[in-house]
Structure formats: C-alpha cells, structure tokens
Computed example of a mutant assay.
Amino acid sequence: MSVILVTGSYDHEIRFWEAWSGICSRTIPRTGETGQINRLAISPDKRLLAAGIHKKVCIYEIANPSAPPQLQFDGHTGNVTAVCFHSEGKWLVTGSEDGTIKIWDLRSAHLQRNYDNEAPVNDVVVHPNQGELLSCDQAGRIKQWDLSENICTHELTPAGDIPMRSISLASDGSCLVAGNNKVRSVFRSPVVIFSSLTQGRCYVWKINDERSDLPRFQAVTKFQAHNKYLTRCLFSPDVKYLATCSADTTVKIWSISLNYEFKLDKVLQGHQRWVWDCAFSADSAYLVTASSDHTARLWEMASGETVRQYNGHHKAAVCCALHDGAG
C-alpha cells in the first residue's frame, strides 16, 4: 500500500481508509477487543500498526488486519497515551496514565525497559538519534530519557505543575515544542463571580548538541495557540509548520522562521467538535485530523481547505496515523 491512513475511535473500531476516495477499505474487528482506541502508530516499513487500546497495546499486520493481533502487550495498568516505533522497527515505546514509559522488543515480544515517571504520562516521542526519548506528563514536566544510560538526564517545568498535554520534536532534532492548558480564574466584585478561562499555550526550546557549552534545552519562545484546551501539537516533516489541535474545533497552522518565530499562517475550520489528533503527509503538503464529531478530514496545507472527509465512526474519532512515504 502506497498510502496508509488509519483512524481510531471511542467506538472501539480501527478503520483503514482510501485516502483519495474517502472509502473505508477495512475495519479491524471489535470482537474480543474492549476499550477505546487511544493512540495509533504505523511502523516505518509500513508492515505493522500499533494501537493503544485502553490498558493494552495490540500490534497488527497491516497486510492482514482482519487477523488477530500479531503481538499484544499487557503490562500497563492505566490508559495507554502514547505509542512510537523505533526507526528500524526493532522496538516500540509506550506511555501511560499509570505513570510508566515502557519499551517493548518487537522481535522477542518482551518488555525491554520500564521507566517510572512518577506521574501520568501524556505523550512520548523518540529522538531522531534513536538513543533518547522525550516525554511530557500530568505534573507539568518534560523529561529526556537516555536509553544508553537508562536514566532521565534532563527535566523541564516551564509552567510549574500545569499539565503538559503534547510534545513534538523537529525531524532534525533541533527544536522541541510542548503544549499545555493554562486555566486563569476570574473574580468579580462586590458579587463574587468565578469563571475559568483556558488558554492552550505552546513552549519552544532549541535543542543544542550535548558536546557544546550551551545548555541542552534553550528556551526561545512561548505563545498562546488557542483560547480553549490544546490537545495536540505537531511539527511538519519539513519543520516549516507547526499544527495545533484544540477543543475550539479548529486546527491552527503556524509558520516557523529560522530564528524560531511562530506566526499564525492559517486556521483550518470545518470540524464541529474537539479536534484530538493530527498527522502530516511525508511531503508536508497535507494534514489529517480526527475529531469528536465522529469524522476525520484531509486538509490541503496550501489552501487550508478540506479535500476529503472520512465518515463511518459512531463515536469520537480521537487518533489517526498516516504513512505515505517510502516503506
């Protein structure tokens, strides 16, 4: 398959789509599967699909998705919130609300590493060097994990204990973006009226070479991305854009300058409810999004228009994965 597009939903279904026709070509059966689909990832060789399904992780053969999972990892005790493949498909990293980050050997099907994060994990990404992980959590921390030393080597808390919801790492490893939701309380006198204003904020760090005299993570900017909850932030493969998804039903596209300035380029409008996840095409020309309105959409980046809508889920579509590059 030249283009693999997959969505997951609270209806417990994983659907494969023909990207250009909008037709659902295959559905992974719900038989025996209990729990919502939280996260999806496609292996670099396009052979495997990893699905975080409630507290477990199922690995499916993409060529035969109707078959039972090829592998199943049951070590987490809370919702699985992150799944990422090693660049050569040797291992899979998962994060969970149980406060752990686990690395699973896909060849032996055994648990290889287990890191105690001490707080629910909201997102994990693999550094391009394949020797480090970066995670964010409910305690507001961003951590770098060194796989050779087997320890957390750096920790950032840019906004105190405000939970960090999502992180994204530039494909060249030069820049890190993390998004959180800052709630601001308002009181009005003499009659006290309480209200909470939520702001989805993004924090940006330049990542320096560890051999230099500069700090590993150098804070460069922060900006308000949305006036409601921020659910996902994601760099485009060419690192020219950042996409942010939100409870405000929109996806915002931010252009990135060479000196790490983020300028709002366009707002993608069309979803009717929360937008939970997004995935770029390999050439950064298209973006797929998944929403609580039960649909996924394919957007053309140049125009900001929807070019295809994927209908079929019966509940919120909360995750998506796209692989249209070389396998």
Results as ranks from 00 to 15, higher is better:
L134N: 05
L133T: 01
G75P: 04
A290R: 09
V125Q: 09
R113I: 13
G89Q: 02
I151W: 11
R308N: 09
S43P: 00
N227P: 14
W91Q: 06
W20A: 15
S2Q: 13
Q72T: 12
K228P: 12
F194A: 12
T34G: 12
T244M: 06
N79R: 14
G75S: 03
Y203D: 10
H110K: 15
S291C: 09
P120R: 06
L214F: 07
S171H: 10
L134E: 06
P215R: 02
V121K: 05
W104K: 04
A63W: 10
S257I: 10
E18G: 12
S185T: 15
M164V: 04
P128G: 03
E132P: 12
C24H: 08
A321Q: 01
S168K: 03
I4L: 08
F217K: 07
G304I: 04
A63E: 14
C58G: 08
I37K: 10
L176G: 02
R15Q: 09
R107F: 15
K266C: 11
L5D: 05
F235P: 04
E88L: 12
T94Y: 04
W205E: 01
Y310N: 08
D11L: 08
V307C: 10
Y229V: 07
D11T: 06
H271R: 00
V93E: 04
L156P: 04
S87I: 14
R141E: 12
H127C: 05
L40C: 06
Q199S: 13
S257Q: 11
G32W: 10
S166D: 06
I28V: 12
A296E: 08
Y241P: 07
G35I: 00
A19I: 13
H127D: 02
K228L: 14
D172T: 05
N117M: 13
H271P: 09
Q112T: 12
N129S: 10
A51D: 02
S195F: 09
A67K: 09
C152H: 06
T157Y: 15
R30T: 14
A282S: 14
V125A: 07
S189D: 14
V192F: 15
A290N: 03
P158E: 10
G270R: 00
I167M: 08
V288F: 03
H323M: 07
